[in-house]
Amino acid sequence: MSTASEPAWREANRAMWDERVPIHAASAFYDHDAFLAGKDTVAGFQADEVGDVTGKRLVHLQCHMGQDTLSWARRGAARVVGLDFSAPAVEVARGLAGKLGYAAEQAAFVAADVYDARTALGGETFDVVYTGIGALCWLPDIERWAEVVASLVAPGGFLYLAEFHPLANVLDWGTGTRFERDYLSREPVVLDEPGTYVDFAAETEHNLSHEWNHAIGAVVSALAANGLRIEFLHEFDWTLFQHFGTLERDGGAFRQPEGTPRAPLMYSLKASRA
């Protein structure tokens, strides 16, 4: 629930996401029928890099409607917890968990801001702290995020992060060859656009949003400063959607045409606690 004291950016972002939840839940993009029938929504490279989660406790921060969270449960996690600041999204996630037959001890969903996760989760720690693609851009303070994340990682556990590359976020959306935004800026990109990525023509009322770009160095340094050891940092020359007009589909990915300069479009990292 938003309050009068809530920062304007968070209130606007929450209103934007809350309104889009029913659109997403009914969309072919998320295809809840296929998911309930067994579809796994965790990208293959993520499953490979995270490894076997059998018997592990996993928390998914900024989980939206919980499909990835529940996919990890299907992959053998003993307990999964999804957290999102959108109460309508959390209600959809709980509904999916119920339809799949998971008890609350196996799959729980919590409505809370990611910065409040430590308190909202009652101090619980996890073997795997997972954050899905397209999450970090909604947070203004990466240092505070890293502090929260580190507090959730149990001894011997790790954070796994997969994200759109911050360099790709500042290149022009037409060709991906020119800088159009400031890579190192801490100021938000403020947009006021109707629709949503599952239906650009959807009629929506709450269209104001605030997003931030976090440089790779800022992310890695923040995690290291909070006692996590970087196990790997991988950069990929492909992405999962038509980020630039020049990208060409290659199976389930999109890449720059053969012979053109390549830039990193996505990245992943693993950071562990001893």
Rank of each mutant, 00 (worst) to 15 (best):
S5E: 04
S5L: 12
P7F: 06
D18H: 00
E19Y: 09
A25W: 11
S27K: 07
L36Y: 05
A37S: 09
D40A: 02
T41E: 14
T41M: 11
V42L: 10
A47G: 09
D48W: 07
D52V: 08
L58Y: 03
H60V: 08
C63T: 05
S71Q: 02
R74A: 04
G76S: 12
G82T: 02
F85H: 04
A89E: 10
E91T: 14
V92T: 08
Q106T: 15
A112R: 08
A112M: 08
D113Q: 12
G122H: 13
T125V: 12
G132M: 06
G134P: 08
L139N: 05
A146D: 11
E147M: 11
A162S: 09
E163G: 00
E163C: 00
F164V: 12
A168S: 09
N169M: 12
V170L: 09
T175Q: 13
R178Y: 02
R186P: 12
G195I: 10
Y197E: 13
A202G: 04
N207P: 12
N207G: 13
L208K: 14
W212C: 09
I216N: 05
G217T: 15
V219H: 06
S221F: 06
L223C: 08
N226L: 09
L228I: 06
F232A: 08
L233W: 12
H234F: 11
T239S: 09
Q256H: 05
G259F: 14
P264M: 03
L269E: 03
A271F: 01
A271L: 07
S272M: 04
R273L: 09
